[in-house]
Amino acid sequence: MCSYITERAGMSGSAKGPRGWARIDQANVYYDHPYHAPLDHSLNIDFLGGQGEEQTRVAVEMSAESARALVKAILAALEQGDAAHPVEAGR
């Protein structure tokens, strides 16, 4: 891709990185060359929290197929959650 095209999603949650757990407030999502995964292109998500030097980043790089499977799994889990108990919204 070699582009800077990045999708952004606001987040409310936590992620565990090298310095332990931290709050995250944004996810940057892009399909481009990975840094680590042995793929030509990958779906990359940076879970971010905070600003500047104290910013937390938890990164994942996965194949497009993996990403689609993940999306399905997330939606399925949410549906199951909806059925069992109302999913918290707007937080």
């Binding site: 800077y4 990045t6 940057n28 892009y30 840094y35 680590h36 910013q55 980043r57 990164a59």
Partner: peptide, 17 residues
Amino acid sequence: GPGSPDDVAARARAEGG
């Protein structure tokens, strides 16, 4: 930066390159 090259690259990307 500062930070590891991959963290810094992610930050640069978020800033539009």
